[in-house]
Design a protein around this nucleic acid. Structure first.
Lengths: 335, 335
DNA sequence: TCAGAGTATGCAAACGCTTGCATGGAGAAA
DNA sequence: TTTCTCCATGCAAGCGTTTGCATACTCTGA
């Protein structure tokens, strides 16, 4: 690999001059710039990032990305792949690289703390935090900038990005109400997850705003899987429901399964817009949470912080969701 | 951050001595080692990886991981997440880090070529290659070691790891035949993909070995999605089939959908053991392709090559698959 | 013609680490 | 006591950059 020195020799200038040409300094004369650029081409020079980092006060332009140790369910895999894609796209646009870490116990998996100790990374993006998260603690202690995808459980996160889940579910309900559907049932995943809690609130908000009484009998709270969706629908049958909204595509498909078995049909919506919405039938109306965009924004905010060093902001950015209309809400029915 | 110098001062030795203690050289006396270790603790020293790389002839112990630009379908997301997990686990075990790149056109996404040019990575793992792959070309040209997950299309890949898809499908068929099921239908995805071609072969092999004539009428080749699985099953109905084997879980669920609608039931198997096998009903017998293990092995072989520098081996390693038995093959039926 | 201002370039230290070579001291052998 | 080994340690160069400071050159204006 060619070095500054090699270029300098060919161009017959000092390495400082070459370095300045590389970094686009405007101190150098046009003629010299040309000469040096030709030399760079000739020896096929590319700046060495490692040496650069050493000289640049240890700034590597690498960002650590913390992924969950285990993904579970269809949704999570897709979410993280999409988020990663957005993160990496943003990083690329700003000349940064992404290094993978895993949430978790000590030596188990590559750890963000090791990356910090060894000086590899300038900052971190967390896609997942646990209660009393050790990574967060470490990042705070070492004053390493970081961004969080999701809503911070407590207030100590400097930068975060998430959907407005309250509004997202509100929009879904409003959309159905606008179709003249009044008795909306809700199948809601575990409310220990803040997004489920928010989606629940969104449902209530929409109904209240439209003067529809929230009827507890039309709400089932359960775990986030197919069978619970199925059972929830069983409970809801014969309740004269106009439509069903759910907090997860899987729940919706569980409900659909029950309806299929009972030759019933009613408009239904999912959430997260996973690939199964367009895989299984009926194609499911769902909420696109824009995981790619969430990743992109998290990365952008982090880089902004890294480069401009605002120290005290606790920014929380919201990414717009979007309803994707499909067959499952096209025709009407009652159950 | 503390440096060798800081430790040296506290321990009252030279930085060379400290460096030797850190790297575990056996030239240093017990007493000095103790003294230095105490000093390291005192100043909370951690070796700086950037400086280390510079001094170590530019070896960074970072591996580039090339992911596909777009993932499509449920299977792919899960596959890459699992493979990444295995790769990262192995990397961690050997003191390496993983840096993300994306397959693809120039400035679009972080590019493995940039990582090589700037000297960040020692080697690369490819999870996906295109025809006439530019990354492969570049890696070969620059003599950067790399490993490939999947079966190389042509012969120029130094290291690769894949399943034995022929045997995997053969095993599935044998398992069904052992249950006394003779007329096995095959729903096979597009054979432009080598794994589908291999799975097709595995089906033929099993039947031939068991003296069962391969009946073209029982084989449907189609694209890899739900609707094609559905249509394939429609074609196969009334053919007096004892069981159906497929090359993808999605195809199997498409077929199941058709059967459900027609109140038919027949043993059926999927492939890839995606999460939908345990999400939708009936839970689907499928082939675990061990994506985590594929990732792990690819990484292990690459690191072996990086550390021991065998230059000419074209190793191709096969990872064992495993049939996961579930409800879909428990009872019998005919269609 | 010359001082002064500005512009273009070079020198060398620094970033934190590794490592070949030099050196000093302890112990063994004579 | 002297010489020779061997072990433990230190010195300093080097890895490829960046950058503050010094310097040399070119103009301008008096």
């Amino acid at each position: 690999m060619a070095t500054l020195n090699d270029v300098a020799k060919v161009a017959k200038v000092s390495i400082s001059t070459v370095s300045r040409v590389v970094s686009g300094s405007n101190l150098i004369s046009k003629a010299t710039v040309e000469k040096v650029k030709r030399a760079m081409d000739e020896v096929n020079y590319h700046p060495n990032a490692v040496a650069k980092s050493l000289a640049n006060n240890m700034r590597t332009k690498i960002i650590g990305l913390v992924l969950p140790r285990d993904t579970y369910g269809v949704f999570h895999n897709q979410f993280f792949m999409d988020a990663m894609s957005g993160i990496t796209r943003c990083a690329q646009e700003h000349g940064y690289y992404i290094m993978n870490a895993y949430q978790g116990k000590e030596n188990n998996h590559t750890n963000i703390r090791d990356m910090i100790k060894s000086g590899w990374i300038d900052g971190a993006i967390l896609t997942t935090v646990e209660d009393d998260d050790q990574n967060v603690k470490y990042l705070e202690k070492k004053e390493v900038p970081y961004a969080l995808i999701g809503t911070p459980a407590n207030g100590n996160h400097a930068i975060s990005v998430d959907n407005d889940n309250i509004k997202a579910m509100d929009d879904v309900c409003q959309m159905l109400i606008d179709k003249g559907l009044k008795r909306l049932a809700l199948i809601c995943g575990d409310r220990k997850f803040i997004y489920n809690k928010h989606r629940y609130t969104g449902y209530e908000n929409a109904l209240n705003r439209n003067g529809i009484t929230v009827d507890e009998d039309l709400i089932v709270v359960c775990e986030d899987d197919f069978m619970h969706g199925y059972n929830a629908m069983k409970k809801l049958s014969n309740m004269h429901i106009d439509a069903v909204v759910t907090t997860d595509d899987i729940l919706a498909f569980g409900a659909i399964q029950y309806m299929n078995e009972n030759n019933a049909t009613v408009p239904i919506t999912g959430f997260n817009n996973t690939m199964i919405t367009e895989t299984f039938y009926p194609h499911l109306t769902s909420v696109d949470i824009r995981a790619e965009q969430l990743g992109y924004e998290a990365c952008r905010m982090l880089i902004d912080r890294l480069e401009n060093g605002r120290s005290d902001d606790r920014i929380m950015k919201q990414v717009e969701t979007r309803i994707v209309h499909r067959k499952s809400t096209e025709s009407s029915g009652r159950v």
